[in-house]
Simulated scan of single mutants.
Amino acid sequence: MKTVTISDVATHAKVSKSTVSQYLNKRYDYMGEKTKQRIELAIEELGYQPNIVARSLKQKSTKTIGVIVANILHNFTTEVTRAIEDVCISSDYHTIICNADDDPEKEKHYIEMLRAKQVDGLIIFPTGDNRGLYEKMLKDRYPVIFLDRKVEDIPISSILLDNEMASGLAVEHFVQKGYSRIGMITTSIINHITPRLERIQGYEKAIHKEGLPFVEEYVKSAEPTNIQRVLEELLDLEEPPEAILAGNDLVLIEILKYAKQNGMKIPEDLAVIGIDDVSFASFYTPAITTVAQPTFEIGKMGAEALLDKIRNNKVEDELLNYRFDPHLMVRDSV
């Protein structure tokens, strides 16, 4: 079957090739309504499909951005990427979403692959272990934004939560409700992931601020598959915690599973607060108190910041390091 070209569309619609090109690029300023309708009908009748590759080479833009997330299973990731996609669609950009699984090798592969595909920019939830690649993007003046995390001494704009405040809100609420033995569990901190470390730091600062003794044994981190085991270790202590702060949604799910499997009542046997306002928190029994982060606002700002860099050819002269405030959603688990 013969490939339909822009010339065929122009002939069929009885307009010039440049008019069809203006239509395809949504430049309608001086185009009459009847002309637009003829071109639209010609495209439909001929079954014309624009050559995206050829257009990208001509315009030096693929109108595509890459998003490399740390773990696609997180509720946070789902909501942030949805917001990124919404902004990009409204700006006529496509998104390619890749899941790095917090694995530096996978992250490296995706950065190299996406750049080879000539995407116009990247939003990365960085592992932190590909400093050479991050520095190369800066050297190449390549548009990139970090979300949810930052990398020490790498001057790339980052947008994330005030993680210390998130832990502080939870500890303060526990204390207000009369709890003094407060523990915390996060997913693994082996790779020095920003939000996990900062949430632990915020927990420790809040414990001291509330005049409570800091008990090192009360702070645990593990891979999701081992969360229930470390929770059991906490509860087997001579003086176990009466309350647990779950560092993210994956930790919260494992705590709730453990409580159900072992016949524990929340909050009677164990008070719980989770960081990340998961979708089930409000209708779980009992409803779970959470510290919510503005996921859609984070994603929206990240996408808008990246598109601004792309359109205006901006480099990191002025770093955007923005932190959103968390919000305590008080329910029945404390």
Rank of each mutant, 00 (worst) to 15 (best):
K2Y: 10
T3R: 14
T3N: 13
T5E: 01
T5G: 07
V9Y: 00
V9I: 03
H12F: 13
H12P: 12
A13M: 06
K14W: 14
V15E: 12
S18N: 10
T19R: 05
Q22M: 09
K26L: 07
I43H: 11
I43A: 10
E45Y: 10
E45G: 08
Y48I: 02
P50R: 06
P50F: 09
R55Y: 04
T62H: 00
T62L: 02
T62W: 01
V67H: 00
H74F: 14
E79P: 10
V80R: 02
R82W: 14
I84H: 00
I84A: 00
E85A: 01
E85C: 03
C88G: 02
I89S: 01
S90H: 06
D92W: 01
T95C: 06
I96N: 02
D101C: 03
E105G: 14
K106P: 06
E107S: 12
L122C: 03
I123C: 06
I124F: 09
F125K: 10
D129G: 15
G132I: 12
G132W: 11
L133I: 12
L133C: 13
E135L: 12
K136A: 11
K136V: 12
K139S: 15
I145Q: 09
F146A: 07
L147E: 00
D148I: 11
R149S: 04
K150S: 15
E152M: 01
D153G: 11
I154S: 00
P155C: 15
L160F: 06
L160H: 04
L161Y: 07
D162P: 03
D162S: 05
E164N: 03
M165R: 04
E172W: 09
H173R: 07
F174C: 00
I185Q: 01
S188A: 05
S188W: 01
I190M: 11
N191T: 08
I193Y: 00
L197I: 06
I200A: 07
G202F: 01
E204H: 09
L212I: 02
L212A: 01
F214A: 07
F214W: 15
Y218T: 02
Y218I: 06
K220A: 13
K220S: 11
A222R: 07
E223D: 13
P224N: 12
T225P: 15
I227L: 03
E233P: 10
L234E: 07
D236R: 08
E238S: 15
P240C: 04
P241A: 11
E242G: 06
E242N: 05
G247Y: 07
L250E: 03
V251S: 12
E254T: 06
E254K: 14
K260F: 10
Q261R: 14
N262K: 11
G263I: 05
K265L: 11
P267F: 02
P267C: 04
A271V: 02
V272G: 05
I273D: 08
V278D: 01
S279L: 13
F280P: 11
A281D: 08
A281R: 05
Y284L: 15
T285F: 13
T290W: 02
V291C: 04
P294K: 05
T295H: 03
F296M: 04
E297T: 05
G299T: 05
M301H: 05
G302D: 04
A303P: 03
A305H: 05
L306W: 00
D308Q: 10
K309T: 04
R311P: 07
N312V: 07
N312H: 12
V315K: 06
N321Q: 14
R323I: 08
V330M: 15
V330P: 15
R331W: 15
D332T: 13
